[in-house]
């Protein structure tokens, strides 16, 4: 028996997406999405480009109302962005505000909610966790892409969420930085004991990170498969990727994605 995870995945559901549909006029983007996320779980949603991943994410995050169906977050239906959910956006150069220093960016969502000392403490802790200790006074545009995304993650962490929702967060960074950031997210998930829902188009990334991979079909989108990776934790970029189980899951996801693509382009 392979240990499922060193962190505690309970069977308690934290998020449930039920029959989510979204259409614009006659065009249907999401066609009945159903899945649940358990507390402490790391779930990756992977799908071919143009499969409405961003629409799905915006519906789940309460940024957009679905046409039909609903998302339950901690037992409450999502009608506006939930307080215990933090989103890390795809394009860090746009979601970090260039007129504020990194520190101010991280502080922005929680400013006024805590006394000054606690605020400073939280910001500092988040910056240290993502490896940006001492960089708080820099402006985002004075840093590399990888560092900017670290700052965006720190902002999410300081918000102290139960669920971290990440929308293709590493799509714009180079391959080496991406590897570092993947391991960073895995470490942070254990450190902060958060649930992570991670959207990506990269199959390797999805399999390497996830406890469970949800594979999306092409548009109109639905969930075609729900695969438990059953890979041992902690993950390791070399050891994990050498495992037979890794290749197996990877091949299976790859096959599903290709089927989805060819189905879509008939």
């Amino acid at each position: 028996m392979i240990p499922l995870s060193t962190s505690t995945i309970s069977t308690e559901t934290i998020m449930a997406v039920e029959g989510l549909r979204k259409s614009y006029g006659e065009a249907q983007i999401l066609d009945g999405i159903d899945f649940t996320v358990n507390k402490g779980e790391f779930v990756c949603i992977v799908g071919p480009s143009g499969s409405g991943k961003t629409t799905l994410l915006r519906c789940i995050a309460g940024l957009q109302a679905p046409t039909e169906g609903k998302t339950m977050f901690e037992g409450v239906e999502v009608t506006e962005p939930p307080a215990k959910l933090a989103v890390v956006f795809q394009d860090y150069s746009r979601s970090l505000l260039p007129w504020m220093t990194v520190q101010e960016n991280v502080m922005l969502p929680i400013e006024g909610r805590f006394p000054k000392e606690e605020l400073a403490e939280r910001v500092k802790k988040a910056l240290v966790s993502v490896g940006l200790a001492g960089k708080g006074k820099l402006y985002p545009w004075q840093m590399s892409g990888g560092m900017q995304q670290r700052a965006a993650i720190a902002r999410g962490l300081a918000y102290n969420p139960d669920v971290l929702l990440m929308d293709e967060p590493f799509a714009a960074v180079d391959a080496q930085t991406r590897v570092e950031l993947e391991d960073l997210v895995l470490r942070l998930r254990d450190e902060y004991n958060t649930t992570v829902l991670f959207v990506t188009h990269d199959i390797d990334e999805a399999v390497y990170l996830a406890d469970r991979v949800l594979v999306l079909s092409g548009a109109p989108t639905s969930v075609t498969e729900n695969i438990e990776t059953l890979l041992p934790n902690p993950r390791n970029q070399i050891e994990t990727k050498r495992l037979e189980r890794y290749s197996e899951v990877r091949a299976r996801v790859m096959g599903l994605i290709q089927a989805a693509k060819s189905h879509a382009s008939i």
């Binding site: 995050a61 309460g62 506006e80 307080a83 989103v87 505000l97 969502p109």
Partner: peptide, 18 residues
């Protein structure tokens, strides 16, 4: 104003003044 910035302000529930 960038749509992603608007999304950010909403999802982090910034107050109207902020």
């Amino acid at each position: 104003l960038d749509l992603q910035v608007i999304d950010m302000t909403k999802s982090y529930r910034l107050s109207p003044a902020k």
